[in-house]
Simulated scan of single mutants.
Amino acid sequence: MTTREALAHVRRRDGVAVIELVGDLNAAAESALDEAWTAATSVRPDAVVLSFENSGYINSTGIALVVGLLASARLHRIPIRAYGLTDHYREIFEITRLADFMAIDTDEDSAVQGAGGDRDG
């Protein structure tokens, strides 16, 4: 299996920080994810939305990285939402109960609106 380097880009949308995950979520993604989290939360957002639209394979270490983000979010009282998960990974997030700690939406608009962003449109 070919792995794709993990990248994470942060952008803001009406008070919500959106972290776009690109590539595989595994041990090699830790640095990119940590840097993105720091950037996303440096100016306190209303919420953080994780985009999995362009992510590939997520292994157990990648799941652990997401758990770490959830722990930090909970500590700082920042809601997290996600979107773009394949049916397979959505099921894994439900089985592992990650879905109990973050809302999983179908698209970015739903995630941002659910987080309180785009209140006027």
Rank of each mutant, 00 (worst) to 15 (best):
T106V: 10
N54M: 09
R97M: 11
G15R: 06
S42T: 14
F101M: 09
V66H: 01
S42V: 11
S31H: 14
V66N: 00
I58W: 05
A64I: 01
G116Y: 08
R77F: 01
A64C: 04
A111P: 10
N54A: 10
L69P: 00
D107V: 05
A27I: 11
A82R: 10
R77W: 03
L85R: 03
D100S: 14
L85M: 07
A8D: 02
A103D: 13
A111V: 12
S51R: 03
I19W: 05
I104L: 15
R13G: 00
L21Y: 01
A6R: 01
R11W: 12
E20C: 02
R13S: 13
S42Q: 14
T61L: 11
D34C: 05
D34H: 12
A73W: 02
A36K: 03
S55T: 13
A71M: 07
L70H: 07
R90E: 09
G116C: 06
V49I: 12
I92C: 02
V48G: 02
L85T: 01
Q113T: 14
A39K: 13
P45K: 08
P45Q: 08
G15W: 06
H9N: 12
L21F: 00
R81Q: 13
H9G: 00
D46K: 15
V10H: 05
T61Y: 10
G15L: 06
A103R: 14
M102N: 05
L75I: 07
L7Y: 06
E35H: 06
R119P: 11
R13D: 14
M1N: 07
T2Y: 09
F93Q: 00
S55I: 00
A17Q: 05
R11A: 05
L50N: 03
P45L: 04
G114A: 14
D105C: 13
I92S: 01
R12G: 14
G68Y: 00
D120G: 15
E94C: 07
M102C: 11
I80C: 08
